[in-house]
């Protein structure tokens, strides 16, 4: 925090809930970056220095921290499993390979239980979701200040940033963009699976001819708009609930950690420990739920009603 500025629990919490945002500030926006006031002459891509600027950027912005951490963690996950895949043997597996095989076996069993069609995508998809989401969630267990304060120190010392602008969130799944980005990808997969299994006509039929059915052609036509409305809401509610469930759980967990940190300062390492232990359950469970629901949605898309 910059000298002379008061550190209140509110500002501490707000700072912890802000993302490092890189985006386009619109022309004529009046910036007020902790004492440096200026008006943007033309559209400019820059880092937002406070929450208001991030809001003003609207859709044309990236959460750099979320994307970097989720990408980094994803690459780490791919690397670990790729190493295991290269060593994969039908002989006696070593300790590391054994661990990876346990996970693969577990995912494979889940997919076999829920998904009865044939697909090359679904199992790797489930594996990616489970492991990636689990690892992203697990970032929650790092003490809340450790990485952001390091980042702040680096940016202030070497790049001359204002400490207030150095937003940094390391748990990607506490960012709704991340969870919704995944869940809407799942929605497109649902649509894709439906079209692949039933054809375009079948997909439109699944939207228009359920849940109300009629034998009379006139009544059928009358029911189509109602069905379409209901089914479209149903289709959209799947990714929204999927994404918001993960986000909500992780955000709440992160919030408790931040509150504990705001109350206890350095003592958070001890104070947050019981919550961290409990949170391990939430981390695993949410990753598992996201995976299982994805499998269930996709199997519903493939199966006949």
């Amino acid at each position: 925090m910059a000298a002379g500025q008061e550190l209140t629990p509110q500002s501490y919490i707000q700072h912890h809930l802000g993302n490092l945002t890189y985006g386009k500030l619109p022309e004529g926006y009046a910036r007020d970056c902790h004492g440096h006031a200026e008006t943007v002459a033309a559209d400019v891509w820059t880092f937002a220095c406070n929450g208001a600027e991030a809001k003003a950027m609207g859709f044309n912005a990236f959460h750099v921290d979320s994307l970097a951490w989720s990408g980094g963690i994803g690459i780490l996950f791919c690397l670990i499993f790729w190493l295991a895949a290269r060593r994969a043997t039908s002989g006696v597996p070593g300790g590391f390979l054994n661990f990876i095989e346990t996970i693969i076996d577990f995912i494979d069993a889940q997919v076999r239980d829920s998904f009865h069609g044939k697909s090359k995508v679904i199992a790797p998809l489930a594996l990616t979701i489970f492991c990636w989401v689990f690892l992203m969630n697990a970032m929650d267990l790092i003490p809340v200040d450790a990485v952001p304060k390091t980042f702040e120190w680096v940016m202030v010392s070497f790049f001359g940033w204002d400490a207030h602008a150095a937003y940094f969130k390391i748990v990607p799944t506490t960012d709704p963009n991340i969870t919704l980005g995944m869940s809407f990808t799942v929605m497109f997969l649902i649509i894709g699976f439906t079209i692949k299994a039933k054809g375009v006509g079948g997909f439109i039929g699944s939207l228009a001819l359920h849940p109300f059915q009629a034998d009379n052609i006139v009544v059928k036509c009358l029911l189509i708009p109602i069905n379409f409305l209901l089914e479209t809401i149903g289709l959209l509610s799947k990714p929204v609930s999927l994404g918001l469930r993960l986000f909500g759980n992780m955000y709440a967990g992160e919030f408790v950690f931040i509150l504990l940190a705001a109350m206890m300062g350095t003592w958070q390492v001890i104070g947050a420990w019981p919550w961290a232990v409990f949170h391990i359950l939430v981390i695993t469970l949410q990753a598992f739920i996201f995976m299982v629901l994805t499998i269930v949605y996709l199997s519903m898309a493939v199966e006949d009603h």
């Binding site: 993302n19 945002t21 985006g23 991030a54 809001k55 950027m57 609207g58 859709f59 044309n60 912005a61 990236f62 959460h63 979320s66 994307l67 989720s70 990408g71 994803g74 996950f77 791919c78 499993f81 790729w82 090359k120 995508v121 790797p124 998809l125 594996l127 990616t128 990636w132 990607p172 960012d175 709704p176 963009n177 991340i178 919704l180 980005g181 995944m182 809407f184 990808t185």
Partner: peptide
């Protein structure tokens, strides 16, 4: 809690990792 292009970025990451795993 702004919804922005991060959502697209994450979808691209997601697709890449799923493809890699596949």
């Amino acid at each position: 809690m702004n919804i922005n292009m991060t959502i697209i970025g994450q979808a691209i990451w997601f697709a890449l990792f799923v493809f890699f795993c596949m």
